[in-house]
């Protein structure tokens, strides 16, 4: 069965403990939100799952095989990645960025054929980019650019998506759009791990919340089980009012301890 599994993973860098005994598993059909303050180790955990960072202890496996033993191409066919910083060195065309999503299949951006062409077309359509296909990325708004990066990640058609703050600096409408796209990807059988800072948004879209602090996983469970005022106080040191009704979750931070 397809699974990304972290087992007691520790990461140390320059004497600092970035991740300590983190264990978690990610499976298709599940949207997992990583939650925690800045510096909690969320990005480090994702990087371990992608073989971007080598753990100092513990194991990371993908479908039962150590992640470090995968060739970059093999890994990319199973896990697509949307990093936190998404610099674009050149004002490339939208369609060319999305086509890069097919890199692991050997596709060249100029001559897309068969499966590559249909995967790119599908990702462009799903993310509402058809009318922007020939636009240069430096002429797009932040929201449009976020959709381009999502489409690029979806075009890989990988069973797993790892997204580090995919909705950072987006307006509420675009945050919703992007999360809806990721939710649809999961409902179609993908497995997504997403770092989010908007906890109400995370609770609304995610099946499971993984709470992190100081490099450790503090809690791991459905929003109904783990999204509590006590948890908010423990992780973020804030008082919060949390409610769930037919509109979904709402969360108001009422004080800073």
């Amino acid at each position: 069965m397809a699974e990304i599994k972290l087992n007691n993973v520790c990461v140390e860098a320059g004497g600092a403990r970035l991740l300590h005994n983190a264990s978690a598993s990610f499976r298709p059909g599940e949207l997992i939100a990583l939650i925690g303050p800045n510096g909690a180790g969320k990005t480090t955990l994702l990087k371990c799952a992608l073989a971007l960072t080598a753990p100092s202890a513990g194991t990371v496996t993908l479908n039962g095989k150590a992640i470090a033993d995968f060739s970059p191409i093999e890994r990319a066919r199973l896990v697509s990645y949307l990093p936190q910083s998404r610099p674009l060195a050149w004002p490339v065309r939208v369609c060319d960025v999305v086509a890069l999503g097919r890199y692991a299949y050997g596709a060249s951006t100029t001559k897309l054929k068969g499966e590559d062409a249909s995967a790119v077309a599908e990702a462009m359509r799903d993310c509402g980019l058809n009318h922007l296909a020939d636009r240069r990325t430096n002429t797009l708004s932040g929201g449009e650019l976020a959709r381009v990066h999502c489409a690029r990640a979806f075009a890989a058609k990988a069973p797993f998506l790892i997204a580090d703050e995919p909705v950072a600096s987006l307006d509420p409408s675009h945050q919703f759009q992007i999360m809806t796209l990721i939710r649809a990807y999961v409902d179609n059988g993908g497995g997504a791990v997403v770092v989010l800072h908007d906890i109400a948004l995370a609770a609304r879209f995610a099946d499971r919340l993984i709470w992190m602090k100081d490099g450790e996983i503090n809690a791991n469970g459905a929003p109904e089980e783990t999204l509590t005022t006590a948890q908010m106080k423990q992780i973020f040191a804030v008082s919060a009012v949390i409610a769930k009704d037919h509109n979904g979750w709402s969360l108001t931070v009422t004080g800073d301890d």
Partner: peptide, 20 residues
Amino acid sequence: RRALSALSLGEEAAHGLGVD
């Protein structure tokens, strides 16, 4: 050459795309 195209998206994204 294909790796150079992928690097337009930055090194982390290129790694994610499967660039060695």
